[in-house]
Nucleic acid binder design. Structure first.
Lengths: 347, 347
DNA sequence: GTTAGCACTCTATGACGCTGAGTGCTAACG
DNA sequence: CGTTAGCACTCAGCGTCATAGAGTGCTAAC
């Protein structure tokens, strides 16, 4: 026994129905709502086959069928028809990008909000990965007697600043000198490329100025810790509470506590890199137990052809993939363009 | 009929019991568990009185009694015995402050985490209010051709930075000049004190240098918007899901969505300023509908005798006030000391 | 004033049976 | 030989009902 056209039709009908109703769907319902031109009995036979093939399952004997994870996968890969965003929605998105184009954070959070509003699920956005960008410039600014600020500009335009303490006898001239050395040594390098050898080299160069040696190390260390600062933005977390599959407090708790732990979430995202285009990860295709009943639709956004971050939507496996994929696709494109514009302006 | 010693004992027993069990407590339970030396019947009589006085209520005829909001209030004001933190806990808190004393954000989030872990409720911390602090120094640093960074240092040591775009022909010398003017005019003033007149004054002074006029305005505006940047840190949000009163998804949703909206939360906090010492706000003593079944224990933390922020714990009205109050009190003291140390080091 | 006793109330729980949705099988049909 | 009508069967969900248990309020006795 193998998949044929009518089985596909039936599977499509089951999934379509289940996505909207969240109820197991029976043979009668399909016969009534979808015009397959056959009787419920025939559909029952097909369903029996589909179950044997593993595409659908039965919660209990006298219930209808629901799609299995494999069913969703088949649907996403072969059956689904992509939807197109309406003009109205396209306009709404474009409006969302008109203001506040000068702050990375604003763009990210705007995108996330729109994404969650349009899909009614939870939006997940990783801010631009700093590992992929290289140092462009490092500035050290003395603010008061013992306090200075490190400002690191990356080639992507990303910018990070941090406070450091400095010895009392350090003045701005010293700091400028240090910046110069750092710029010369580190300019154009990515964080990954900064090896211990290089640090030692800087160290020795600095050692001519004994009293600011410690400081230089401090700066590097700060820089390295800043490295891990790529944040994850979440939008519409509470949307999942509207989904019937999350009427159970325990499930809510496990999922929310996953979302609360940024490390885990980052891990999850990094382990399901979408590569090019939009990727769909269904249930246990993601490693973590907590999202076994969830799916993610994700895509990378790019600057200069380089993927610099990931954007995605997290919802129950029973989500409207066709719609969500279209939205993610469109938003990714827009986000890439917007980021590109911002970075171009800065370089 | 009026409150007397035995009624107090009974009320205390009811509240104590209800706090731990979350179940209505009956006369038998009290007679058994708390040694009042009287029979259940007598306690029933007292309970009847207490109900008439409004301190307790009955969910339904054949159930025990639960404290009313007024009952909790009476308990907090007159009956409760403050608990003391054990040496073990004091040590844990002190450890928490040992590292990372150089970043305000770290201190805040550390405090919040400890607070929520120790109380098992949700911790709410407002970062230092910037309105209360005055400008100490403003720096403008040119980063690239069209891009500069504004760094604002407040007298509290708080620090804010923001990116701005500048015209191409502006160089660091121009920026230094602007910083100087701004420092001269704004130094020592709080945000509140910056009036339109002052801005106009600066404006006119700047007008000598036509081409950087726009820039100056930009800087001020950025500064003003930075103003509203006092964030609210939340710790242990999911703890409330462990409370039996939040087994209902709808309640969870309303409360969480309140917490998600920073403006509302800020409003809530600002409307219940604790003043000196630790304040307790029970149920509808706070204005918002969403927290009618919650209480907050809050206190201000200080630098130089000035309250600069608020720290609090949010939980169901049925919380262990004695314990929570002690924890908040201790944490506030510690936070104040730590902040003071940080700011002293910076001034 | 306190307490034992008792009737009363009301929730929670579990058993029971019914209903309706849905299936799987079989036999008849084209 | 695929399709379908018919039918017996299964099972979750729901309402009903009776029971148990916790707790009260009242009364009368101490």
């Amino acid at each position: 026994m193998t998949m044929d056209a009518r089985k596909q039709q039936v599977l499509l009908a089951i999934i379509t129905d289940f996505i909207t109703t969240a109820e197991p769907v029976g043979s009668r319902t399909i016969a009534r709502r979808y015009e397959l031109g056959v009787s419920p009995a025939t559909i029952r036979n097909e369903m029996s086959d589909l179950e044997e093939l593993g595409y659908i399952e039965q919660p209990h004997t006298s219930a209808g069928r629901i799609p299995s994870q494999m069913g969703y996968r088949y649907y996403v890969d072969f059956l689904m028809e992509k939807k197109k965003l309406s003009l109205f929605e396209v306009n709404k998105v474009n409006k969302g990008y008109e203001n506040k184009v000068n702050q990375i954070g604003e763009v990210i959070s705007n995108t996330g909000d729109m994404l969650s509003k349009m899909t009614q699920f939870t939006a997940v956005i990783m801010t631009p990965r700093i590992e992929m960008s290289s140092f462009k410039q490092i500035k050290l600014v003395l603010l008061s007697v013992k306090q200075a600020m490190v400002i690191v500009v990356m080639n992507t335009g990303a910018l990070q600043s941090n406070l450091i303490e400095v010895p009392e006898d350090v003045n701005q001239v010293d700091l400028d000198m240090i910046s110069n050395v750092l710029n010369a040594k580190l300019g154009g390098l990515t964080f990954e490329n900064i090896k211990a050898t290089l640090l030692r080299e800087i160290y020795s160069e600095m050692s001519r100025h004994k009293n600011i040696l410690d400081l230089s190390i401090d700066v590097i260390e700060k820089g390295m810790t800043l490295n891990r600062e790529d944040k994850i933005y979440l939008g519409g977390v509470l949307n999942i509470l509207n989904q019937p599959e999350f009427h159970n407090i325990e499930k809510v708790k496990t999922l929310l506590s996953l979302l609360e732990q940024e490390d885990m979430l980052r891990n999850l995202l990094e382990n399901s890199d979408p590569g090019e285009g939009v990727a769909v990860r269904i249930g246990s295709e993601m490693e973590r137990e907590e999202v076994r009943e969830c799916s993610m639709v994700l895509a990378n956004y790019h600057v200069d052809g380089q993927p610099i971050g990931t954007i995605g939507v997290l919802g129950p496996t029973r989500m409207d993939y066709a719609w969500v994929i279209s939205v993610v696709e469109y938003m990714t494109k827009n986000l890439s363009v917007t980021m590109e514009k911002m970075f171009k302006g800065w370089r």
